[in-house]
Nucleic acid binder design. Structure first.
Lengths: 208, 208
DNA sequence: GTCTATACTCTGATAGAC
DNA sequence: GTCTATCAGAGTATAGAC
């Protein structure tokens, strides 16, 4: 039974997980080309040939890592409920996205690095699933604006702004911490700041 | 006369520029470790040994590229005038930063990649110049808030939000374009969106 | 399933002719 | 100043023993 076909033994399952975790560590820090199998094998505590027993190539490890990541990454947006109270739904989405960035910074950086490099290994996913989901949720946001339940603003750029602001704290972590200095909890402060920002942006009792 | 000491001949000056431009292209797309001298030399239209005649090592090329980049990158913030009208000054800063992202996307991505990877070659600069400048400008923002000329919000996170939102359009360009689809001008739309966002965030006639 | 040994390619850098 | 030739080391991947 080849290791890439199911079912897998406990030890195979376990080793695949160990390898993927190590690969996440290395790929997120150096990008695809900058990462080496030597490094991944060392972090995983395996020999390089043994690593290549579980995955046929470097490319395959990277692909396995990305597969499913986009899904996880979009879950918070998927969960935005058209039947909920608009502002509360949006703030809850921001909260979930920020929690994701805080709890899975390596995943966030892997994703960011991939996009930064032109998304050579994610193109179709981005132009397919991602685009479709944004379109669907943008329609919901537009309806809420039409109904006067939140202030009017470009719905797609609203979603972009949520992505940009939440991921900034994971992806630019070292810069954020360097500027804030010690004794700060960036994600806690971000939570309060972003709640204020989106509340004011979307409040219906705008002066202008 | 060594090529790394001044003065340089016209041809030396010219070749250094060609190399640095090629290096920007390659480093911004693959990161430091993922970039190769072969690639840089090819883009520059030079042989690899010739490239290494102008710069002693790969590291030196990268360093030359980063040196000065941070300065350029911080210029828009530096130009925020404490004697100006607060909201106009902040919106003008957002505008300048967005223009920079639009006109120098490769520089933006080079910078982003470096931070993403833990800023191994920019640590001191970030903890020094960058931090000092942010502190200085945060004091100005705080004073404006104390005087009731803009709404109160964490000034450092306000600066973070400007960085995050403007750079998002350069760094995640492929994602932005994939989601928007053809027939859009991301930076033009971002200009309007961000003006609205920061105007509402900082308006003094808040309801709450 | 895991290891040692190794094939073969790429990469950063140098030597030396012109 | 620029080139060809080349080196040592690192890189991906495979063969084959155990």
């Amino acid at each position: 039974m080849s290791p890439t076909s199911r079912p897998r033994s406990r030890i195979q399952q376990r080793n695949r997980e160990v390898i993927l975790d190590a690969a996440l560590e290395v790929f997120s820090q150096h990008g695809f080309r900058g990462a080496t199998l030597d490094q991944i094998a060392e972090v995983a505590g395996l020999s390089k040939p043994n690593l290549l027993y579980y995955f046929p190539s470097k490319e395959a490890v990277h692909k396995a890592l990305l597969t499913g990541l986009l899904d996880t990454w979009l879950d918070p947006l998927r969960a935005m409920d058209p039947r909920g109270e608009p502002l509360a739904e949006i703030l809850a989405y921001v909260r979930r996205k920020l929690d994701l960035a805080r709890d899975f910074p390596r995943e966030s950086r892997l994703f960011a690095g991939e996009i930064l490099q032109g998304a050579p290994r994610m193109r179709e996913a981005i132009e397919g699933d991602l685009r479709d989901l944004v379109e669907e949720k943008a329609r919901i946001l537009t309806r809420w604006m039409d109904e006067g339940r939140i202030a009017r603003v470009d719905p797609v750029h609203l979603i972009f702004s949520i992505w940009a602001l939440t991921q900034h704290y994971a992806d630019f972590d070292v810069q954020v911490r360097a500027v804030l200095g010690p004794g700060h909890d960036p994600f806690a402060e971000a939570g309060g700041f972003l709640k204020t920002l989106f509340s004011r942006l979307l409040a219906t009792d705008q002066a202008g």
